[in-house]
Design a protein around this nucleic acid. Structure first.
Length: 520
RNA sequence: GGCGCUAUGGUGUAGUUGGUUAACACGCUGCCCUCUCAAGGCAGAGAUCGCGGGUUCGAGCCCCGCUAGCGCUGCCA
């Protein structure tokens, strides 16, 4: 039987990084086993579901490079079928009508209310089968319903027995029926509830393996009960450990903000491959990852079998993936909201930088193009006449960049004459030595005569000039860096000269802008 | 409260059927390289493997107890 898995997010917000990882693992498993991965939008909670959220989920998946097979299923479309199924369960004696009036609950306090009630009930020894309508005669039940009395439909959980299943990650699971309430299948307003809808849809979509967050582990027993009531065979289950915030707390939008949203990483200049790689390593690792990351991603000279580092291409992830290697303990996503340098997990940041400086230029190019275009720095020539120059420049600057944003921010001066000077750089490299105001234009004149204009020749010219003026070359070098790029840090200055070119270099060295607000 | 799950340095992880000084990556510190900053190289700090018992010649790996964290416990998903 072909493996069929599904990713089933509820569209009640952006795509959470935990959900993104669930999607990734489902995708990896499907591709590894030559099966199919389906997408189902669980929008049964009409109040909270939004189309915008659905769009953002689709965008997120696309960004991560996770495609899906077959048509998207919208769970709400199946609501009528789910309702009928619940009603049939009543006919079959597997469920019953509960005429208890609906209890209204304020959304903000539900959680605490539920815990409080559970605590009380367990203290006085709760009987999960105590609902007075459970044993109402079918005739009376039907009569009251026919008279228009509203009712919810509850599953009639057998009095004696246990559910059991073997989770691919967590192993054997068992639960006594006595611990499971007669769960509601259908609300009194006719809306089918999560557990029912999931089971019905998974059956209809012929899902063979359900891979989802560990928060569903204990609820799986309820779903198994529904499968049994329906006379259907449950799929295999694999639950994933959760991703927690520092301190082991739940990672939530309200407390942690945009850090949990996948789009944040896209917008912050992450390469999808890098973030995907990072996500894959949260709660999973290939056998014996004990080798240092191999030097170059996508380096064909490194035999595939020896690539067991942490840096893996999509193909490698697929090849190495297995449910058995998934951990059982929750992972902590490390970040420090008060530290801009560590706004997100260190390792994610490192991995992105690693990808940016090591993937083949051709793979990186489209992302840089998009970034420069967004910053209005892109020129079509970069793909035609100036293609070589563009590649040389990118190769030079990407070595020390961490995100795609750096290409339009720190790297702005390479693509535009309109760039800002870092005040700290001005102070440190220029204003400290007023004589630079004379030296730099003089240096510019020397450079004008250099032929050809390359890193080597510009270096020779600069060093000769330094000797004659009796200044340290380093002083001129650092000053030039600031004049040419606006910054105090960057690639080797002579490489920068070559890439910026004679004309622009000379102009920038002669420019007075950097001295504009210099008082001394 | 009940039930379930988990527990290796700050974080992510490796630790094969129990066997010598607990491994890798990120981060951190120092040095080298050097025109700056990265990268890279070298060196280093950081873990009594949650705690307490037990089995064993020997336990991070097995057993028991405890603790902590997380999850579920809804006419939310």
């Amino acid at each position: 039987m072909t493996t069929r898995v599904r990713f089933a997010p509820s569209p009640t917000g952006y795509l959470h990084i935990g959900s993104a990882r669930t999607a990734l693992f489902n995708w990896l498993y499907a591709r590894k086993s030559g099966g199919r991965i389906l997408l189902r939008i669980e929008d049964t909670d009409l109040q909270r579901s939004t189309e915008e959220s659905t769009r953002s989920i689709l965008e997120g998946l696309e960004w991560l490079g996770l495609d899906y097979d077959e048509e998207i299923v919208f769970q709400s479309d199946n609501a009528p079928k789910h309702r009928e199924a619940a009603l049939r369960l009543i006919e079959a004696g597997k469920a019953y009508r509960d005429f208890t009036p609906k209890e209204e609950r304020a959304d903000a306090t539900v959680k605490q209310g539920i815990i409080d009630r559970a605590r009380e009930q367990s203290a006085e020894g709760r009987n999960m089968r105590s609902n007075p309508f459970r044993d109402l005669s079918p005739d009376e039940s039907a009569a009251r319903a026919a008279a228009g009395e509203p009712f919810a439909v509850r599953l009639k959980v057998p009095r004696e027995g246990r559910t059991r299943f073997v989770d691919a990650v967590y192993g054997e699971q068992e639960r006594d029926y006595a611990e499971i309430e007669d769960l509601v299948l259908l609300r009194s307003d006719g809306h089918p509830l999560y557990n029912l809808s999931v089971v019905l849809d998974d059956i209809e979509m012929r899902i063979t393996d359900v891979i989802r967050g560990q928060d569903h582990l204990t609820n799986t027993h309820k779903q198994i009960l529904i499968y049994e009531a329906l006379g259907a065979l449950p799929p295999r289950f694999a639950h994933l450990p959760l991703i927690l915030a520092p301190g082991g707390k739940k990672l939530s939008k309200r407390i942690h903000g945009e850090i949990v949203s996948l789009t944040t990483y896209r917008d912050a200049g992450f390469l999808p491959a890098a973030f995907r790689n990072f996500l894959a390593l949260l709660g999973w690792a290939p056998t014996g990852v004990q080798f240092a990351a191999y030097a170059t991603l996508g380096n064909e000279e490194v035999p595939v079998d020896e690539r067991v580092g942490e840096l893996m291409t999509l193909d490698e992830l697929v090849r190495n993936f297995s449910l058995e290697r998934i951990h059982r303990n929750n992972a902590i996503f490390n970040f420090d909201a008060n530290n801009p340098r560590r706004w997100t997990d260190d390792k994610a940041l490192w991995m992105n930088a690693e990808y940016i400086r090591t993937i083949p230029f051709a793979e990186l190019q489209p992302f840089i193009k998009a970034e420069l275009r967004a910053a209005r720095l892109w020129r079509e020539e970069y793909e035609e006449d100036e293609r070589e120059w563009f590649e040389q420049t990118v190769e030079l600057i990407r070595q020390r960049f961490h995100t795609l944003k750096d290409f339009s921010e720190q790297g702005r001066a390479y693509f535009s004459d309109d760039f800002d000077f870092d005040p700290a750089a001005l102070k440190k490299n220029l204003h400290k030595e007023p004589r630079l105001r004379e030296w730099l234009p003089a240096l510019a004149s020397r450079l004008e005569a250099v032929e050809p204009f390359t890193a080597a020749t510009s270096e020779a010219a600069l060093r000769a000039f330094a000797d004659e003026a009796n200044v340290k070359a380093g002083l001129l070098i650092n000053a030039s860096r600031t004049m040419l790029t606006g910054q105090s840090v960057g690639p080797s200055m002579f490489e920068v000269f070559e890439v910026i070119g004679r004309e622009r270099s000379v102009r920038r060295l002669q420019s007075g802008v950097a001295w504009a607000d210099f008082a001394g």
